[in-house]
Design a protein around this nucleic acid. Sequence first.
DNA 1: GTATTCAATTTTGCATTCAAAATTCAATGT
DNA 2: ACATTGAATTTTGAATGCAAAATTGAATAC
Lengths: 227, 227
Amino acid sequence: MNHDTAIPRRSLHDELVERLQRQIVEGDLAPGEKISEKELCAAYDVSRTPLREALKVLARQGLVVLTPHRGAHVSKITVAQIEEAFPVIGALEALAGELACARATDEEIAKISLLHMKMATAHKIRDRQKYFRLNQQIHDALAVAARNPSLNRMREMLDGRVRRARYFANISTTRWDQAMKEHDQILAALKARDGERLAAILKQHLAHKLETLRGVIEDKNAGAGAV
Amino acid sequence: MNHDTAIPRRSLHDELVERLQRQIVEGDLAPGEKISEKELCAAYDVSRTPLREALKVLARQGLVVLTPHRGAHVSKITVAQIEEAFPVIGALEALAGELACARATDEEIAKISLLHMKMATAHKIRDRQKYFRLNQQIHDALAVAARNPSLNRMREMLDGRVRRARYFANISTTRWDQAMKEHDQILAALKARDGERLAAILKQHLAHKLETLRGVIEDKNAGAGAV
DNA sequence: GTATTCAATTTTGCATTCAAAATTCAATGT
DNA sequence: ACATTGAATTTTGAATGCAAAATTGAATAC
């Protein structure tokens, strides 16, 4: 009798987690910024209870820092954190790639192929925002094709933390071209279903992304005070 | 003036997260079991607010399942979940091993060495509980020596989810002997600071752990009803 | 005897309230 | 002028209150 259409119902706190996440990742809530419960409650027109529940979750994810009796701050992006996170994401994406090669359907590979082509276009016309989003979508699609929700969840958690930095960072043209080339390789390995190779490329790719980010990070924490 | 002794203050919700986590991992709260807010509030003598905050966090970690308007259940240990989690833990531990080889202090290696010897003793006298705990401590110490809190956090998250299963599973003697041998290799690679080798061993080690667990899992979900 | 309905009860999600802690800021002393 | 005190205000952490949703269970129909 189950037509596998469970009616999706969302709680306020869940919705808030998602929205705050986006606000933080996109820098709408700046690193180091104090989070005023009152203000946010007013903005979203909710009471403090669900908001605070959401903050606890975000704190666990590392997007905000909770100090007892002193409230919540958007966690800063530190070089150390980024340096930490990237190898981990690299390991996770490498595994995802490996699994995806074994498990992805042909349709999924076709879909990723399409995203790839769109991204190549965005690259060609130098549309950074579009490129960024498609890039994200490709990595997400790979993770989905890996058929491992736990893996995906871990990746998303870490990714949320560094996506901010990547969102801010203005990638250089040469590095951008290199990244695009790496993506060509990624797609090739996936199409060939060569898991080992894809894993290696992804690990490298992430290492390069980290390299790109080094240096541009400190500036983004300016004027926020210690947390 | 800072003697780097920040007074540690904990909020109720934080304390609750930790306690519930332990209760779930150790099976005190059984897989599939309904979590009665009322009951737990009475047990810990707190109001529903901090308890609910804690439940949201645990839900995000995957230890409990929250169904809107229908409350919280301890998440079940399914074969699928275990199969999912182990490769991920494997990838994370492999990375941790790699990093630990590069970064561990000699003291840390000595400490792990000591834990290893204690564990060997526990193995010799067939003290399962002691072995289990020391095994846990060794893997934790490795993670700490990797100097990567993010990595550690991810690992702990996943580990909490499968530790339950491992806690319940009654390892066979032959597999136990094999695991002990693998740990000998782990220690050897660490002492030699051979990151690549350690990574490979750990990945294998986790794969074997998974193998051990297959089959003993379904029984543990008995009598809990669908969630 | 089994299935169906619907009112009573319980439980959940969220809002509100309250006490304790932290912050602000004006008053005071040096 | 600058630092220090401490009362007023704000903010936080947690308890309680309340309406909506879900569960229970007794009454009824078949």
